[in-house]
Simulated scan of single mutants.
Amino acid sequence: MLVVDDEEDILEIARLSLERLAGWSVVTASSGPDALQMARTESVEAVLLDVMMPGTDGPATVALLKADEATRHIPIVLLTAKAQSSDRQELNKLDIAGILQKPFDPVSLAGEVATVLGWDDG
């Protein structure tokens, strides 16, 4: 799992949650370009991606990942604080597996990600 967020504390909480509670292998990135590089070089089964980041934001990062032959198959789950339905409708137009809300519950994060991705267990 690749977790992408520009806020270091959120990266750390998500990483610890997914590693310790779900036993997943997690790598992190703090920007869209870093996410693309990590997705190309690491064995990543999915991406948990923040929507609002400086520079290359979540939607732009989705476009980068989907345009690259090496990464286009990786499912992406967006993580957003945007709660308005109009924002969510725009995000749902992207080629993503789903959207999770920020702030998230670290205890239930892995289960929510697994559900969105259609994985049997989290």
Rank of each mutant, 00 (worst) to 15 (best):
V107H: 13
V62W: 02
I99N: 04
Q101K: 15
A29I: 03
G98F: 00
E8W: 06
S108N: 13
E7N: 14
P33F: 07
D120P: 14
T56A: 07
A46Y: 06
I13A: 12
L36K: 02
I76Y: 08
K82M: 14
R20Y: 01
Q101W: 08
P106R: 02
D57A: 10
L2A: 10
L21R: 13
D68V: 04
T115K: 15
Q101E: 15
S85N: 13
H73T: 11
W119S: 09
P59V: 11
A14K: 00
V4R: 00
D50P: 00
F104K: 05
S108L: 11
E45C: 07
V113M: 12
V27S: 13
L94E: 09
R88K: 14
I13Y: 06
E45K: 10
P103Q: 01
S31P: 05
K66T: 03
M53A: 06
R72M: 14
I96P: 03
V47M: 04
S86K: 05
A67V: 05
T61S: 05
M52S: 12
L49V: 09
A70F: 04
S25G: 15
A114C: 04
A83S: 14
L100V: 04
V26N: 09
T41A: 14
L79E: 02
R15M: 00
T80S: 02
K66N: 01
V62K: 13
L65Q: 08
D120I: 09
I96Y: 08
L36M: 08
S86G: 06
V77S: 03
I76H: 07
